[in-house]
Design a protein around this nucleic acid. Sequence first.
DNA 1: TCGGCATTTCGCTTATTGCCGAAATTACGT
DNA 2: ACGTAATTTCGGCAATAAGCGAAATGCCGA
Lengths: 95, 95
Amino acid sequence: MLEECKALSNETRLAILEWLKDPATHFPGIGDEADGVCVGLIQRRVGCSASTVSAHLATLQRAGFLQATRRGQWTYYRRDEERIRAFAARVHHDL
Amino acid sequence: MLEECKALSNETRLAILEWLKDPATHFPGIGDEADGVCVGLIQRRVGCSASTVSAHLATLQRAGFLQATRRGQWTYYRRDEERIRAFAARVHHDL
DNA sequence: TCGGCATTTCGCTTATTGCCGAAATTACGT
DNA sequence: ACGTAATTTCGGCAATAAGCGAAATGCCGA
């Protein structure tokens, strides 16, 4: 619960989670979105450095909100809906 | 959402919220718990300084999780169950 | 009114987080 | 093998958060 809340305690990370709900509308020029969105696209949307975005994505992944798939030189990130729902349920139950 | 998550991003504050679910078992020698638990009792349970505990309680109140009632020289804090439920619902819906 | 108790505010120090650019890593194409 | 591109890791700096003790505030009783 603590790690998850920490991961959500940042405007940029909340925005990323929101955008990944519907990649097609938030990331122009996206192709097959089944695997998620690559770091570069997210970085351009966020507007800060690649290293910072990478850290944010790693934080969200450690918290269980994102899944990553490496394909070639790209890493695709997508929401882990199951774990997101599980977290929401835990908030409802435990908080 | 951001402010609420920040408020929950601390072990001590999470513990306080948890304890206040059932004051009678977590705070020895509590009387009428309708108004909540006074800062002194919470401070003894937490084990850190009065000023720190006061800051934590203020944070939780600003986030909407606690309500405060001043009675004489004591401030009683209790969970705001309605707003806590509302937050949980928002997490479930928006996240 | 004065002294004492509960709580909050203030000023400060330390720890954590956020951010960057540079360097390292990994993969692709030639 | 080499050069380029995507991403991550590293080292450092600035901003925010967490903690403390001392001082201030508010309230009660003598």
